[in-house]
Design a protein around this nucleic acid. Structure first.
Length: 631
RNA sequence: GGCCUCGUAGUUCAAUGGAUAGAAUAGAAGUUUCCUAAACUUUAGAUACAGGUUCGAUCCCUGUCGAGGCUACCA
């Protein structure tokens, strides 16, 4: 898991290193490189020319953004060279700065402060940048490549509705899929439905015993919620039975095993696996209810899948692979007939792959699915979006696949994320202490409506438009809230405190976007005007600090996207879009656009805000967040 | 017990080994005859603890303390 990530990172690092070294085309790095990369390239070459004996290479060159309290935009860190070259930082900075200024048109000034060389990007850089990109809907994306990756996400159990924790999984999987697509990869979004097993049998037993034929139609209840209620019902009954047995003098462990309703559930599972027609019919009916419910939720969440896998279809393949592994001697059988793999040599434990009664476990089915996925799409990589409680499971899966000599093994990567917890601890659907996903969506939309009305912002909208707006704001806030934290960190959500619509939120970004659209409407311009509108643009005046700050940010978008993709980390885009919106708001505050000082400034700023809106839309749309044109 | 995460302002989150640790929110003080004040400006406030490596450590290493997860013939 961590090691897979590290491998990936070091591979990319190597690619970059060779790229920079190969870019020996002195002082004319490719235009397609980001500013930061160009500066790194230029600085490396300059250092090698100035100090040929020092054997410096690009891996030692660090380029950062200049802190706002200093003048300049990008900073080269000089400390690493000071010792090797036996020079004072100020002297080194002066030499390097002079050289860069003399040999590149990128910079207009430099300043050395302690061990940092602060470089100022020439104003003349920006007109070309803007004209090339301001209305480019693909700005930030990378070219298509023949790299096939599957993202498995959502992967629900069919015995209960989605809860708040599942939402993190769904948003994360959807967002990362889109980010990788934007990076040119060919992505299959897959959903592996855990449709069989003891969990659904529990709901089935409870429904048989207490349901009296209830259906979604007869109760008016969403199917997944209906089935989920019987799952809770099962556990209530189970607890009562265990308590009764214990009160009658039974040992706790024995009581848990012998409780009649549990035995009934296990009996159902055996009948299911034996293909009992009645059981299969009940199973199909109740799963069908759940799928109807899930589909409604998915639709509302705005997520979708290219491919569904069902555990009931793959577990037999898993069994087959396990059986052949047994023949090969990779696996072994215990006296009771159960099948195991011994991973103690790898520092792990022995792992069960088939029960003594021949029924399969979770791992068995995962083995089958992994092979099936690989054969279906000839994948370069297979990413599993699964909570970190399954880190061990995924580590073992990959290892078993390797030992079984399955070609799918190499591409398996676990995108592990921290669980969403309540202030009181984990959500437990068995105990009914969950924040329901559907309820959460309702609540967010309600909140959006309440605050929109309170702010008096409903003028000029039809009721349909308002409903759409509330949903855009409410669901946007929900998605942003769950995506803005780095995936691997766990997060705590307190239902008593509603999700904010101010500050570091989707609403903030949506508002900046709406403001830009408002300006464009005023100017009778579409969101993405034709380049001919700016044919007369010439650059003669220097940029203000606010203009330069926003441009520096916008230029970083492709690099940010690449980072988000490399780290499988949508929070990078949340952070970036928020910073852009923040920078725009400040800019907006002390620069007039429609009433700019002169035509040149007006055209410049129009291009800037058009690109700003484009970047905000592009980044947020990847996360499944829509930006309204009016709010 | 073993293995793996994680401890940063009151709170929620940032910070490829680089400058005086950044935001948001809550707190304090301001801004609207001017393109949307769901905004902007100013202000106060934090690296759990102890060592080590380094020119430089929130980041890497060791130990202590604290939180969580895994270690099922559950999924």
């Amino acid at each position: 898991m961590a090691s897979a990530g590290a491998d990936e990172l070091s591979t990319i690092a190597r690619v970059h290193a060779t790229y920079f070294c190969a870019a020996r085309n002195l002082f004319s790095p490719p235009k397609s490189m980001t500013l930061s990369a160009q500066i790194k390239c230029l600085s490396t070459d300059a250092l090698q020319v100035l100090f040929p004996d020092a054997a410096l290479d690009s891996s030692q060159v660090t380029v950062n953004l200049t802190k706002p309290e200093f003048s300049g935009h990008y900073t080269v860190v000089l400390f690493p060279f000071v010792k090797a070259l036996r020079m004072k930082p100020a002297d080194l900075g002066k030499q390097l700065g002079d050289y860069l200024l003399a040999h590149s048109t990128l910079f207009s000034a430099f300043e050395t402060v302690s061990g940092f060389l602060n470089l100022t990007i020439q104003d003349a850089y920006w007109p070309g940048f803007l004209l090339n990109n301001f209305n480019n809907t693909q700005y930030g994306e990378a070219p298509k490549q023949d790299y096939r990756v599957m993202l498995e996400y959502s992967s629900p159990n069919t015995n209960k509705p989605l809860h708040f924790g599942h939402l993190r999984n769904n948003f994360l999987g959807f967002a990362v899929s889109n980010i990788l697509k934007a990076q040119g990869q060919q992505v299959v979004m897959a959903n592996l439905v855990n449709d069989r097993g003891i969990h659904i049998c529990k709901s089935m037993v409870a429904w048989q015993q207490y349901g009296q034929g209830a259906t979604p139609e007869s109760t008016g209840q969403k199917g997944d919620h209906l089935v989920g209620d019987y799952y809770v019902r099962f556990n209530d009954a189970y607890k009562a039975e265990v308590a009764a047995l214990v009160a009658a003098g039974k040992d706790q462990a024995l009581a848990e095993k012998e409780a009649p309703i549990m035995q009934a559930a296990q009996d159902l599972l055996r009948q299911w696996e034996a293909g009992n027609t009645e059981v299969r019919k009940l199973w199909e009916m109740m799963n069908g209810w759940v799928y109807q419910g899930f589909n409604k939720s998915y639709q509302r969440l705005g997520i979708h899948f290219d491919k569904y896998y069902y555990e009931s279809d793959t577990y037999l393949l898993g069994k087959k692979i396990v059986e052949s592994g047994l023949k090969n001697g990779v696996l072994f059988q215990k006296e009771d007939g159960s099948v195991w793999i011994d991973l103690t040599a790898d520092g792990l434990d022995q792992k069960l792959l088939l029960r003594g009664d021949g029924t399969s476990v979770y791992m068995t089915q995962d083995i089958g699915t992994a092979r099936l996925k690989y054969e279906d799409y000839k994948l370069n990589q297979s990413i599993y979006v699964i909570a970190d409680e399954q880190n061990y499971h995924m580590q073992v899966l990959k290892l078993i696949m390797q030992k079984l000599n399955e070609p799918a093994a190499a591409g398996i990567y676990h995108l592990s994320y921290g669980m969403v917890e309540l202030p009181t601890g984990r959500m437990k659907s068995r105990e009914g202490t969950v924040v329901d996903a559907d309820d959460m969506m309702d609540e967010m939309i309600r909140l959006a409506q309440e605050q929109t009305v309170a702010a008096g912002k409903t003028e000029g909208f039809s009721q349909t438009e308002l409903d759409t707006l509330y949903e855009t704001i409410g669901l946007g806030a929900l998605k942003f809230y769950l995506l803005r934290v780095e995936p691997k960190k766990k997060m705590i959500f307190d239902p008593k405190e509603s999700i904010d619509l101010h500050g570091y939120t989707a609403t903030f970004i949506q508002y900046a976007h709406a403001r830009i659209c408002s300006i464009l409407r005023r100017e009778n311009l579409p969101l993405l005007p034709d380049r001919s509108h700016f044919q007369n643009f010439t650059h003669t005046q220097s940029l203000s600090k606010g203009e330069a700050a926003l441009l520096i940010l916008l230029e970083q978008y492709p690099a940010m996207m690449a980072t988000a993709a490399l780290e499988y980390n949508p929070s990078v885009l949340c952070n970036f879009a928020f910073t852009v919106a923040q920078s725009f708001n400040s800019f907006y505050d002390d620069h007039s656009i429609t009433k700019a000082e002169n035509e040149e400034k007006k055209l410049l700023r129009l291009m800037m805000i058009i690109l700003t809106a484009q970047v905000l839309r592009h980044s947020m749309n990847l996360l499944g967040i829509r930006l309204p044109e009016k709010m």
